[in-house]
Design a protein around this nucleic acid. Structure first.
Length: 284
DNA sequence: TGGTTCGTAAGTGTCCAACA
DNA sequence: TGTTGGACACTTACGAACCA
């Protein structure tokens, strides 16, 4: 039997990758796996070298007007096994990405979805809330070509009565310090046309009408649908588009909460905007 | 005492757009 | 067509603190 010794930083990095699946160096620093980049980079390099390939990374180079795109790190099969040993878990209990192929645009969207997840988890830890469940659109079960497993399916998918479905970017369930459970559905928009954004949000009126979200995630109350935007301009255009839609009645509006990503990263609970409202409100 | 981590500062690498 | 600059991420060097 091989005994593997992990330093505290190495363990924190592997465990953070278990929870968040893909992380940039900046996100790892935000999660406080170590205090400074000058220590983080050598540790990451050591974890990814030939002797201990427990972590791999995807490098996308640079983007015009944006600069260099950060590399995304993820657990390898060996890394998942080592972490399972350190946590006293069976290796099958530590997931790791398989068949990793990410285009740049998809990568930025995934990066921002993970930013939302980090913001929610850090806020929950700081405010005594428990994260009971959290999944993103890239978390899937099953396999399309398998004869034994069910078909591939996003864990966040909401089935609708007509056989179609909606795949939110993220779904999570929190329990407050007073024991109150709350379910949230999150949509993260970046670099899309705002018309496409409002169309995706308008699809939720079917899920609301059928109580499909409550049914799918076994939640007895109304869920909160969070729409997070890269900037104010996209947020305001989407708000305006939804208020002008004749098929999007006023009774749908209380379900929706709007915010920009920087605002979400600063505070998860406060400062949300409703559809057609300037006044900011708390989520609960 | 040695391994690990922290902190500062400066330099390098990558890609694209603009320009001569 | 080659050069330059922008906008970043990433790397390296070095000294110091911490801790078992």
């Amino acid at each position: 039997m091989t005994v593997t010794t992990l330093t505290d930083t190495e363990f924190k990095i592997l465990d953070a990758l278990r929870i968040f699946r893909y992380l940039t160096a900046e996100q790892l620093l935000r999660l406080k796996v170590t205090a400074h980049a000058s220590h983080l980079y050598p540790v990451l390099r050591d974890l990814a070298d030939g002797k201990r390939p427990w972590v791999e990374k995807i490098d996308h180079g640079a983007m015009p007007g944006v600069g260099r795109i950060p590399a995304a790190h993820y657990l390898t099969e060996q890394g998942a096994k080592v972490l399972a040993g350190a946590l006293g878990l069976d290796p099958t209990e530590v997931p790791y990405p398989k068949g990793v192929v990410l285009v740049r645009h998809g990568f930025m969207h995934r990066l921002h979805t993970i930013d939302c997840e980090i913001a929610v988890r850090l806020w929950a830890a700081e405010h005594g809330h428990t994260v009971d469940y959290m999944a993103s659109y890239f978390d899937v079960s099953g396999a399309n070509r398998s004869k034994t497993k069910p078909k591939r399916r996003a864990l966040t998918k909401i089935d609708l009565a007509d056989g179609s479905g909606i795949i939110p970017d993220s779904v999570f369930h929190l329990t407050g310090s007073d024991g109150t459970p709350r379910l949230f559905v999150l949509e993260m928009y970046n670099q899309h046309r705002t018309k496409r954004m409002s169309e995706k949000l308008a699809e939720y009126r079917y899920a609301i009408g059928e109580h499909a979200i409550e049914r799918q995630f076994d939640y007895p109350h109304s869920p909160r649908i969070l729409a997070v935007f890269e900037d104010d301009k996209a947020l305001e255009l989407t708000q305006r588009n939804l208020t002008q839609r004749p098929d999007f009645g006023a009774h749908f509006r209380p379900f929706f909460f709007f915010k920009t990503l920087p605002e979400l990263m600063a505070d998860f609970q406060e400062g949300w905007r409703g559809i057609g409202e300037v006044r900011q409100t708390a989520l609960f």
